[in-house]
Design a protein around this nucleic acid. Structure first.
Length: 296
DNA sequence: GGTAGACCTGGACGC
DNA sequence: GCGTCCAGGTCTACC
């Protein structure tokens, strides 16, 4: 099965894939040389398969080694369109960025899109795994979680040990103790379990946030109600949701701003905010795609 | 509203 | 091989 999906222009496949670290986290698997993004997806029919996403003229192509029903193709189309933000329009951001030398590259590189997981549940959980730890540990915890709770690929896709991301109910049926001992998420275990229970029980309709009409400030308040989600995580999730009003200030942001404007001297989150205040609803985007002096 | 300290893991380092 | 230190956001208690 192969389908081609158009993207609103400008669009750049590689830059969307590499917009943040998600492409390095299972069930994503990016082949840098071939520029192919693989993802182990679970369709609404519970079918688990690996898809291969490539650059195509004016958009992307999606391929699976399986025959799919019309309903499954529609489901896949909707999901991949969301993941790549194919319909997103950044013309207002580009118009604002035109006057800033440090953002002069954004149109040409088609920056603006941030790679998403199929569900916001997956994005929230992964974001919690990024907090208060090193990137290598984030990837390990995520992999442990998927291996522990996610369904394995079926043949013929199953040439390697790959799993889809677990559904809320699969984690909710477990316990914080298992999350701590087997998945090694440490003190995050109660937060992750509580999130899974709330979503699985229907108490928290987290997927509705994707299409929420709430003002960004209100949506942020809702995200902050999730245990384990603080200012950094909320800003990161808002960026994923296409709301660029907040900056995900972490230790990296402090380092970037410190080298950009303070000769490497320590800075506070308030100083980070100050430098992007004028960007208003594009604050997060301006920060994210800024052409930083410090490259790490 | 601001701040200090605890939370937990694994890598780096010294012995 | 063992012990110690450190990095990384969020939460809670306290002022």
């Amino acid at each position: 099965m192969k389908l081609t999906l158009p993207a609103r222009q400008p669009f750049n496949f590689r830059n969307t894939v590499r917009s943040h670290g998600w492409y390095q986290m299972a069930p994503f698997d990016y082949d840098e040389d071939e520029n192919i993004l693989k993802y182990v997806i679970r369709l609404e029919t519970s079918k688990v398969l690996e898809i291969q996403i490539r650059e195509a003229p004016d958009g992307i192509s999606v391929e699976a080694q399986k025959k799919l029903t019309t309903a499954e193709v529609n489901d896949l189309t909707k999901t991949v369109t969301w993941m790549f933000g194919l319909e997103m329009d950044f013309s207002d951001f580009y118009a604002a960025a035109k006057k800033e030398l440090k953002l002069a590259h954004v149109v040409q590189k088609a920056y603006g899109r941030v790679l998403r997981s199929p569900t916001l549940f997956e994005d929230v959980l992964k974001t919690i795994l990024t907090t208060n730890t090193l990137w290598s540990a984030t990837k390990r915890m995520n992999l442990n979680l998927i291996k522990e709770f996610g369904p394995a690929l079926a043949w013929p896709d199953r040439q390697t040990e790959k799993h889809a991301f677990p559904e809320p109910a699969e984690i909710a049926a477990s316990s914080p103790e298992v999350l701590r001992e087997a998945v090694r998420v440490g003190y995050r275990a109660p937060s992750i379990h509580e999130l899974a229970v709330r979503v699985a029980s229907g108490e928290l309709d987290i997927e509705s946030f994707k299409t929420s009409g709430l003002p960004t400030l209100e949506l942020r308040k809702e995200l902050l109600k999730i245990k384990g989600v603080g200012p950094y995580a909320a800003a990161n999730l808002l960026l994923i949701l296409g709301r660029g009003d907040f900056i995900p200030v972490d230790s990296w942001a402090l380092k970037l701003v410190s080298h950009e404007w303070y000769d490497g001297e320590p800075v506070t989150p308030k100083q980070v905010e100050k430098h992007f205040e004028k960007w208003g609803e594009f604050k997060g985007l301006a920060y994210w795609f800024w052409n930083w002096k410090y490259k790490g």
